[in-house]
Amino acid sequence: MQILDGKALSDQIKIELKTKSDTLNLKGITPGLAVILVGDDAASQTYVKMKEKACDAAGVYSIIHKMPTTISQEKILETIMMINNNPNIDGVLVQLPLPKHVDTTKIIEAIDPKKDVDGFHPFNVGRLVAGLDSFVPCTPLGVMRLLAHYNIDPKGLDACVVGASNIVGKPMMNLLLNAGATVDICHIFTKDLKAHTQKADLVIVGVGKQNLITADMVKEGAIVIDIGINKTQEGRLVGDVDYENVAPKCSYITPVPGGVGPMTIAMLLENTIKAATQRL
């Protein structure tokens, strides 16, 4: 069993991205990322602080637009338009979830697709589905980079993606399809989850339910990627996989924390620098 170390790989990627940033600087371009943070959700604030720190390390200029929970949808849209029109900002990131009175779809659709470093705009979603170059959501992109780093080729593998969200599950499915895998996707209405995961060479899970994937649900030698993040009663971070019992059966597995999480932020930086190169 080999652990897929996302922390080490993300640190390596950040060093490479700093070099790319420095090269862009010599050409008069400083990659810029604008973050919109609405409300005072503790998890969102923590994520944004982590992203801000990572931006500094990679030579990316970042600015955070903090807004109260009561902010109107129109004000958020005005801010997005202002960022879209700012030639010094290459990426726009709206930290989700948004308050209930805000239409998340309208907010995402307002972002310039060329600055959509989260890869959520329908324009980029469509290009991903068609197998064309696009901005890809950071978490599934991070999974693909992690697999590639460890020379795991999805081509010909039977893959099972557990979770069908627009942010993780659906783009993960499309990336795997584009890479030549046979993909099974499961969700809350799947009748017999075990029947799907048990036959998969590659299991990727991201639903936010502790111990959802147990040892009897994976076959010997399976590759298991755990995207889930849950906090135990003791305050410990764990994934969706019963790591202690599942890991001995695996050929490869990601830990939580230290697996996919760090890769997500690294891919956000990579997407931002990719957007900045459009200015050349």
Rank of each mutant, 00 (worst) to 15 (best):
residue 59 G to T: 12
residue 91 G to W: 04
residue 96 L to I: 08
residue 81 M to L: 15
residue 72 S to M: 11
residue 102 V to Y: 03
residue 44 S to R: 06
residue 35 V to K: 04
residue 91 G to C: 04
residue 81 M to Y: 13
residue 107 I to K: 02
residue 48 V to S: 03
residue 78 E to K: 14
residue 95 Q to M: 08
residue 108 I to W: 07
residue 68 P to Y: 07
residue 92 V to P: 01
residue 54 A to H: 08
residue 84 N to H: 05
residue 98 L to H: 08
residue 107 I to H: 01
residue 100 K to L: 13
residue 49 K to V: 00
residue 61 Y to C: 02
residue 41 D to R: 14
residue 75 K to L: 07
residue 97 P to C: 12
residue 83 I to G: 02
residue 98 L to M: 11
residue 49 K to G: 07
residue 72 S to K: 13
residue 67 M to T: 00
residue 87 P to N: 07
residue 42 A to D: 13
residue 97 P to Q: 12
residue 66 K to L: 00
residue 55 C to R: 07
residue 45 Q to Y: 03
residue 78 E to Q: 14
residue 51 K to G: 06
residue 107 I to P: 02
residue 90 D to T: 02
residue 67 M to G: 00
residue 62 S to D: 04
residue 97 P to R: 12
residue 36 I to P: 01
residue 35 V to H: 03
residue 45 Q to C: 13
residue 56 D to S: 15
residue 106 K to R: 14
residue 94 V to H: 05
residue 89 I to P: 08
residue 40 D to P: 05
residue 107 I to L: 05
residue 95 Q to K: 08
residue 77 L to G: 03
residue 60 V to M: 04
residue 108 I to L: 14
residue 80 I to V: 13
residue 65 H to Q: 14
residue 102 V to I: 15
residue 49 K to L: 06
residue 104 T to F: 04
residue 104 T to L: 12
residue 64 I to L: 11
residue 102 V to W: 02
